[in-house]
Amino acid sequence: MASTTPGTPLGLLDLPTDILVMLPDFLHNIEDYINLSSTCRSLRKCMDNASPRTILRLAHASSRVFFRPDPLFLICATARELGNWARESEDNEAELVAGMPRGLDHLMDMALRHCGLTVARIRELHALRFAVVNPVANLIDQCVGTQWYATPNFWNGGVDDAYTVIVDPNELIFDLAIYGELFAPDLEHLFNNTFDDPAVSSRRRLKLATRLEYVKYCLPDDMIICRKAEPGSYDPRLELVHHPEGPWVRIEGGRNRCTYNHTIGLIWLMNSSRWKPHWVKAREDAGAGPEFRDRFCEYHFDFTYMDPANWKQLLLTNVMQNQGLEGLGMILGGTEIAERFKPKIREWKDKIERMKMPPKTMVGRWEAYDYPDLWGDLHVCRYGYVLNT
């Protein structure tokens, strides 16, 4: 590439370094970047100076080939950074929420504007695909996917939760992971009620309304779109917007664009008798047993009696499941990730043990928790939709 004879045209490597380091901004995709980095030592050194935002742009250009499912993989990769950006100010969070009716495309666009990615992180993510994504997706398939449906006598007692659920396990695992990546940092505020840390207290946390907007538009479900709110249960946070580029826009036959049961699928998964034991075992293996004994009785909004609920045990399970992509690996016993999470599981249990009552708020006539609670958020949205028709 460099010139070797006087009078010959200059080669690429004859250009000044301050120009060569700008080359990543003019590449088309991550393949171009990798190929150019592999050309020689000098260009590799120059490519290493590419900004994380440039790397993310190049990765996005190759997302349908190397970062599937698209755009879930790259959204998951940037969701924690995007959530932290939204926590910086009210304006940032408002910008994140304003575009939610577009669904996942909005999250990807926001990530491209405010987040970045490094080559080292890309390597970590692809390692997690084999270490976490594939094995956990296989477990999900056994709970709500084709392996579940393949159970003999499925509709006649073969499983204890037979139902029509249309999901893609490879997408459902990212639905779980993205929620955790976005909202898990807010759990620190919950535990800070017991351990008063000024550094935690001074940080903003994302609002419940932001979580509900995420569930409504990024976990859409065609099976529940026709549910209407009961009189007196209206809450503007539950109103649906049919954005022309979003999941709720009407297409042929009067149906909505969403094709999978993201909400129902997650509810069925989290309640599955095949899913729960993995989390119980992870907790027990970490030495975070026995189960909490505290129980108290609740009354539903219509004053029908509900069974006693061990809210501390439910909270611990919820905290464990809402830790993002890597956190899902804590149920894969014997792995490095599972071992690494054991001290955290014991720490969470100790902190929850010292709590007195769970922080709650009302959404219309439904109770919701002030801390990230995917199970609760799914149910609030499932039963509280108000159609904007």
Rank of each mutant, 00 (worst) to 15 (best):
F183Q: 09
D197E: 11
P135M: 07
I178W: 02
A184D: 14
C381N: 06
E298Y: 06
I140T: 06
L387R: 14
D222M: 04
D307Y: 10
R346A: 10
R340G: 10
V241K: 11
V241D: 13
D285S: 11
P16G: 08
E298W: 08
G116T: 01
N388Q: 12
V215K: 03
L104V: 04
L187R: 07
Y305D: 14
W275F: 15
P308T: 07
A2T: 05
P343S: 05
D14V: 01
G384V: 04
T259H: 13
A50W: 01
L104W: 12
R204E: 08
N134L: 15
V159G: 08
G364Y: 05
P277A: 10
N170V: 01
K360L: 15
F174K: 09
I122D: 09
G327N: 08
L325P: 07
S51C: 04
H60M: 01
Y217P: 00
R283Q: 13
G334Q: 06
M306P: 01
N388E: 15
T78H: 05
G287K: 03
F67V: 02
E252W: 14
G180Y: 09
G327K: 02
S233W: 14
G287N: 07
L56P: 02
S42V: 04
R64D: 13
L104Y: 08
F341L: 06
E298R: 06
Y179F: 15
G83K: 01
L332N: 05
S3A: 13
N138F: 11
C218D: 04
N156D: 15
D294E: 13
A338M: 06
F296S: 09
V241F: 14
D196Q: 11
R205Q: 12
E230L: 11
A86M: 07
N170Y: 11
P152Y: 10
T335A: 07
S38P: 02
L58H: 03
G253A: 10
Y299G: 12
D285P: 01
I345C: 11
S63I: 02
L56I: 05
W366I: 01
H242Q: 12
D168V: 00
K360Y: 14
E284P: 00
H106W: 13
N84G: 03
R121Y: 08
I345N: 07
L316E: 06
W155E: 13
R123S: 13
A288Y: 06
N318E: 15
K216T: 03
P185G: 10
I140K: 06
A120N: 13
K45F: 06
G11W: 07
V136C: 09
Y305E: 14
L332K: 01
T39Y: 05
D285Q: 11
A127K: 11
A309D: 11
A111T: 00
E298I: 00
H242Y: 14
Y234P: 01
H189K: 08
T118I: 03
V380Q: 08
C115A: 09
F303W: 08
